[in-house]
Amino acid sequence: MRSILERYLPERSVTPIFNLIKENNVHLKIVNERKTRHGDYRKMPNGAHQITVNANLNKYRFLITLIHEIAHLLAFEEFGRQIKPHGGEWKLTFRNLMLPFIRPEIFPTGLLPVIARHFRNPKASSDTDAELAIALKSFDPANDKNYIFEIPGGAIFRIYNGKTFKKGRRRVKRYECIEIDSGKIYLFQPNAEVELIK
């Protein structure tokens, strides 16, 4: 397990993560990319704890995602299964688990202040924190995608499932975009990755 973790995590985080996995009897599965989530946690019918994390994540996003899922396990164990999945108990657990990792030996110094701000009140997904998502993306391999906030108003773009949209006005934090085929309006986070068509 340790040698597998070394391929996906920052070097100085491997041992403490390995210990967390071992102490909590986690069955970790590294899986192909899922567009709708980076990872998930499930308590199996036999009582085992299964966590899956997407294999395509950069090592910093992988670490945050894995700790996010371990926080679900520990929050449910400590506070009971009736708590909200991303409620106060989970936020407290996630923040406490992350604190020992928010160090320059693990994260690049430019990323540390963004991570520290995020963990004052962690979101259900690191993708809903646009500043963190953009900072983490800078460690991904280059691709042909743009963020919604980068493309001009009125531009036509495609999302991962092939649907096309026209970018509309900004509404507080998100952008109203019209689906070309249906004419329906959808709201997009500013850091949604899209393929610019025209």
Score class of each variant (00 low, 15 high):
Phe62Tyr: 07
Phe62Cys: 06
Phe62Ser: 10
Phe62Arg: 03
Leu63Asn: 11
Leu63Lys: 07
Leu63Glu: 05
Ile64Glu: 04
Ile64Trp: 03
Ile64Pro: 10
Leu66Gly: 15
Leu66Tyr: 15
Ile67Tyr: 14
Ile67Gly: 03
Glu69Lys: 09
Ile70Val: 13
Ala71His: 12
Ala71Ile: 13
Ala71Gln: 15
His72Met: 05
Leu74Glu: 07
Leu74Cys: 12
Leu74Phe: 10
Phe76Ala: 13
Glu77Gln: 13
Glu77Phe: 12
Glu78Pro: 12
Phe79Thr: 09
Phe79Ile: 02
Gly80Arg: 14
Gly80Met: 12
Arg81Gly: 08
Gln82Ala: 13
Gln82Pro: 02
Gln82Trp: 12
Ile83Val: 05
Ile83Arg: 09
Lys84Arg: 05
Pro85Lys: 11
Pro85Asn: 11
Gly88Phe: 09
Glu89Ile: 00
Glu89Phe: 10
Glu89Pro: 00
Trp90His: 11
Trp90Tyr: 15
Trp90Leu: 05
Leu92His: 14
Thr93Glu: 02
Thr93Pro: 00
Arg95Lys: 09
Arg95Ser: 07
Met98Ala: 02
Met98Arg: 03
Leu99Thr: 11
Leu99Arg: 10
Pro100Arg: 07
Pro100Gln: 04
Pro100Thr: 04
Phe101Asp: 01
Phe101Arg: 12
Phe101His: 03
Ile102Glu: 00
Arg103Tyr: 05
Arg103Asn: 08
Pro104Glu: 11
Pro104Trp: 08
Pro104Asn: 13
Glu105Trp: 03
Ile106Ala: 04
Ile106Thr: 06
Ile106Gly: 14
Ile106Cys: 05
Ile106Val: 12
Phe107Tyr: 11
Phe107Glu: 03
Thr109Met: 13
Thr109Leu: 14
Gly110Met: 02
Gly110Asn: 10
Gly110Gln: 12
Leu112Lys: 10
Pro113Met: 13
Pro113Cys: 04
Val114Arg: 03
Val114Asn: 01
Ile115Trp: 00
Ile115Asn: 00
Arg117Thr: 03
His118Tyr: 10
